[in-house]
Structures are given as C-alpha cells and as structure tokens.
Design a binder for these strands. Structure first.
Lengths: 212, 212
DNA sequence: CCGCTTTTTTACCATTTGGTAAAGTCACGA
DNA sequence: TCGTGACTTTACCAAATGGTAAAAAAGCGG
C-alpha cells in the first residue's frame, strides 16, 4: 500500500493546504507553457519542473504522473473554452450576438494564447485525450447554438447561412491569430496593428456575410 | 573520416540510384505521417522506421539524422505551399482570382492534410526550424500579393479590404478543415457534406465580403 | 518547543531514444 | 560468375526520460 499522495486524493477529499494550492498552480502554469509548445510527447517532466522551479520528484508528489497533469489542464481548458459560445443567447439582436461572440473569441486568443495552442496541438494530434470532452461537452453546445442560428435565419433576421459552417469559420479566423502567431509576427511585425486590424477585418467580414 | 552516406552526398552530387530514390521516398512519406502527428520532439526514429518498413540504422544510412529528415520535409513543403498563392495574378477578374486562390487552398487542405498539419505544428511550436523560410520565401510573396490586392481595391475593382488580413483569413478558414479535422469529424460526421459545405460557405463569405 | 504530518531532496531504476561500428548481404557491370 | 561497391542487419552505447524509495527538512497544532 503506497503512501497517499497530495494530488491523488480521491475526488471527495477537496481539502488542499495553502502550499498545495500554490504549488499545484505553479505546476499547472508551467505545464501549460511546456505542453502548449511541444505537445504531449514532446513535453518532459524535467522541463515542466524547471519552469515551475521545483524538482521532478516534487512534481510527482502533487500529480500522479505526466498524464495526470495533462488531463487536469485539458479539463480546466474545456470549461473556459466553451464559455464565450455559451454566452450567445437568443435575447438581443442576432447579428450583434454573433459579432459579440466573435469578439469574445478573438479576445480569448489575445489573452490566453497558451490555452489556444494547447487546444490546437491536442486536436492536431488527433485529440487522443480529448474526444470524450468533445463528444460530451462541445458537441451538445454546438448543436444547440446551430439550432439557435437556424431559427434566426428562418425568421429572416440573418442572411441565409449554414450555421455549423458559420461557427467553424468564427473559430478558424479567431484562433488563427493565437495559434499561428509565430508566422504572423514575421508577416505583420507590428503587434498592436495586427490585432486591431484583425478585429476590424473580422467585424467587416462577418457583418457583410450576415446582414440580411 | 567516416564513410560517405547516401543522403549526405554534397548538393552537387545529385545521382541517386533507384533503390535510393525508392527508400528515401518511403522514409519521407513515413516521416511526414509521424512528424505531422507528434511534432518534432514527439516523433521517434523508431516510429518512422516502423512506418517506413525499414530498420532504424537503415534510416540513418539515407539521412544524416532526425533533423535532416525534418528539414528535408520542410523544404519540400514550402515549395508546394506557396504555389497556390503564387498563381494568383493580375490577369483576370480580381474577385475570381481571389476565389480561385481560396478554392485551391481548400483543395490543398483536402488533398494534403498531413502537409498542412506538419506546417501547423511547426508554426505552433514557434517555427524554430522554419523562420528562415518564412522570411525569405513567404514574406516577399505575401507582400507582393498584398500590393496586388491593394491595387485592385484602389481601382475600385474590389470592396475596401485590408489585403494582409484578407489573405490571413483565407489561410485560417481553409487550413482549419485539415488541421482541426479531428474536432470537425466529431461535430459534422458526414465527410462529404463537411467539405462541400465548407466550399459553399467560404465562397459565399468571401464573395459577399469582396464584391464592390 | 515537542511530536506528528506534510513537503522536499537525494539517490536511484528501467526503458526509450538518437546514433554508431562493423560485419554481413545484395546487385550489377565487366 | 565474380569482385566491388551499394545496401542492410546485428549488436551496441551514452544520454534522456518517466517514475520510485526512503531519508531529510519544514510546518504546525498543542
């Protein structure tokens, strides 16, 4: 019977000391940096430990293993990632709701590029650890919002559009600025101009596409 | 003085036997699969060797090392990747030129998803081995085509648009279907409907955005 | 300031990984 | 068909990697 580790405590046991909360936080922050740059296989515990300023065995005192850290990150991520879409509701003008969603998503790319890359790299690699989340978390929300958009179109409050394709194109255009930043920084070196240009461009594009 | 290896021959020596051409091809094909799924650090020579049906030392007979394989892939990729944009010229109707470019890019995502993922994963990881290519290959082409689009806008043949942002949004929307296929396959399981829907949606979107 | 728990460090391990040396095997032109 | 160079395999190696055991150090309630 091995000793109970801090991070391995059953889901019921939520008591965490101050030190545990601090160090788990530092580990997750460091792991986000490393996983989002190198993917699961390319990330090493040594690198995460170095970035967190802790020793490798100390990391393994707080988490059951590399996979445990990764899964914990993905769980947290999914929550935050769905929020902007969930906020799009039937109250309010359809066009403004959609533009608002696009703006929130673009802001997320700007504020949380590491999370965006973590998500992107996981999907690129075939979503091996995330498919359950996609099925159970994202898909129902996606379908609900597709029906909402379809209703708006049917009521003539939006130009005719394939709701699923519309949402996908919002994801694609907004996430691109976080995920491909290394490329865009070469082509458009001015950081502020790039982001302001993005917002103006996407606003024009989706407004033209959706105005009935 | 080590023995001269097949793949290490100086750039001048282009003679390659039938066996060399075959096996280098098989190795590069296998490596494309593995690198595009796991990134540079996550890919292993063992995996590449297994996928190619060769032994690991045999792989190292044809290439100087793991990095040599990766660089060779990126070089080949860059060539093919710039082609669709290079084909967009000032002869012909501006709107049709741009829509044609978008369609070629979407077709590339459909036909060469592994290449698209290889590129995406390299950029996501900060483009460590590709920045020179971006500077010397992509950037000049990008700037040239931006000027072309700016000229079209100035002549009133296109709606006012930020040329750089326009090109970026074409990249984002088309590449997304290859890079995020694992996610889209969950949300839109019907493969043909997904791609046909994409083409129709993007055509509508960019046509509305660009019609003067 | 004592004793007990939590946290951290030191010293390891087994496996994997990129890479090499050298002995074999094959192909093909003379 | 035979010799020579091109190709392939076998047997390794040193470093890196995920992970563990157990001792040492810190916290902390009493």
């Amino acid at each position: 019977m091995t000793r109970q580790q801090a991070g391995t405590a059953g889901t019921g046991t939520r008591r965490r000391s101050r030190i545990q909360r601090e160090n788990r936080g530092r580990i997750l922050d460091a792991a986000l940096e490393v996983f989002s740059r190198h993917g699961y296989r390319g990330a090493t515990l040594d690198r995460i430990a170095a970035a967190a300023g802790l020793s490798k065995p100390n990391i393994l005192y707080y988490f059951a293993g590399k996979e445990d850290i990764h899964i914990t990150l993905l769980n947290r991520l999914m929550h935050r990632w769905l929020e902007p879409l969930a906020q799009m509701e039937e109250t309010g003008e359809p066009l403004e709701e959609l533009l608002g969603y696009m703006r929130r998503k673009l802001q997320m790319s700007r504020d949380y590029p590491r999370e965006s890359r973590l998500f992107a790299i996981e999907i690129l690699q075939g979503a091996p650890r995330m498919r359950p989340h996609l099925e159970s978390g994202l898909k129902p929300l996606f379908e609900r919002k597709c029906r909402l958009i379809a209703d708006w179109v049917a009521a003539g409050r939006l130009a005719p559009v394939d709701p699923g394709q519309l949402i996908v194109s919002i994801w694609a255009t907004t996430q691109h600025y976080a995920d491909f930043e290394a490329q865009l920084a070469v082509l458009m070196p001015e950081h502020e101009a790039r982001w302001n240009g993005a917002e103006a461009h996407l606003e024009t594009m989706f407004r033209k596409m959706l105005t009935p």
